[in-house]
Design a binder for these strands. Structure first.
Length: 314
DNA sequence: CCGATTTGACCCAT
DNA sequence: ATGGGTCAAATCGG
């Protein structure tokens, strides 16, 4: 059982992540709205920059949802033991699970290896997908193991920023089915690293007992006016989780669709270098998919952060 | 050259 | 004793 300050901090961190994701999604919407305004294709030289920017935004959204899911799961488990197996709609959805408990050991035997760290108690997320997941985080593989009665080996990854920032997030990935291909990914722990490409993303999970300092845009919600902060109802958290799971799923679909169709690469965008938020872009090629994709992205970007809360609070 | 991956050994839990 | 998680030296590759 965690104390009130800790719970409040999980709320705060979750909101912080949602707000980031919301802001990034809005930037994506802005980007695609501009692309649909039919401006003439100028400045095609900047298309690579714009593609990078769009991918960066997608990465931010995915990271925000990933972190929020982990945070909310942490909160859910704190609140409710019966929530330990929260199953949702489809095979690509997130499924929080409880990790096996283990202690860090410091056994020192012959002196060859001083400390051998087993995974700490931490929240885990399990997810099945038809392809290895691109979750926006950078991972470094540190092991591979053939598992008993398993056709395919299990791969072990840790956060790239473990060494430089002490981030303890890890994940395991294993192909569990051939046809159709199905991969199982289990995430352990929460990222505490600052992503160097997105320096604003920094979660001080170690400092969860203390007040969280968040700087929001004026246009964005603050924790004072978010119902989530005035309620600890687990139903709200469940609802919130489902909503985020959907959006996380959509973000992945959007990312894979874009890459599969080479949508970004086959269109010319211009990028107003004076300000990332005032993009001027154009599409000079017709594509059967472009309208669908941009509409899809706009729909995705328009998800309402407040909706699940308002419904539940009324 | 340096960061990422591979892979056998080591270590822990059961 | 065994399965599985992690370490770390060797290797790879940009």
């Amino acid at each position: 059982m965690k104390n009130q300050g800790s719970e409040s901090c999980y709320h705060s961190k979750a909101i912080e992540e949602l707000v980031r994701g919301h802001e990034s999604a809005n930037q994506l919407r802005e980007l695609f709205n501009k692309s649909n305004e039919g401006s003439c294709g100028v400045g095609g030289d900047n298309s690579a920059v714009t593609v990078t920017f769009a991918e960066d935004l997608l990465g931010k959204v995915l990271r925000s949802f990933t972190n929020t899911l982990l945070l909310l799961n942490e909160k859910n488990i704190d609140e409710s033991e019966e929530m330990s197996q929260f199953q949702v709609r489809d095979s690509r959805s997130w499924k929080p699970t409880k990790s096996e408990d283990s202690e860090e050991s410091c056994k020192s035997t012959s002196g060859i290896r001083h400390r051998y760290k087993r995974r700490r108690t931490s929240q885990t997320w399990e997810r099945d997908s038809e392809a290895p997941i691109e979750d926006g985080h950078k991972w470094r593989k540190y092991g591979q193991k053939q598992i008993l009665n398993a056709k395919h080996p299990r791969n072990y990854y840790r956060c790239t920023h473990k060494s430089d920032q002490g981030c303890l997030a890890t994940k395991q990935e294993q192909k569990i089915q051939d046809e159709p291909p199905l991969f199982k990914t289990v995430y352990y722990g929460i990222h505490t690293c600052r992503n160097l490409l997105n320096p604003e993303i920094l979660l001080d999970y170690d400092d969860c007992a203390s007040e969280c300092l968040i700087s929001f845009d004026n246009s964005l919600p603050t924790k004072q006016n978010l119902p989530l902060f005035s309620s600890s109802s687990s139903s709200i958290m469940k609802e919130c989780n489902e909503e985020i799971i959907q959006d996380h799923h959509l973000a992945h679909q959007c990312q894979s669709t874009a890459s599969q169709e080479d949508y970004f690469l086959s269109h010319e965008f211009t990028f107003d270098s004076s300000c990332c938020r005032n993009l001027t872009l154009s599409s000079t090629l017709e594509s059967d998919h472009s309208a669908d994709i941009s509409e899809f992205l706009c729909d995705f970007a328009e998800f309402d952060l407040f909706e699940p809360f308002e419904i539940l609070m009324s």
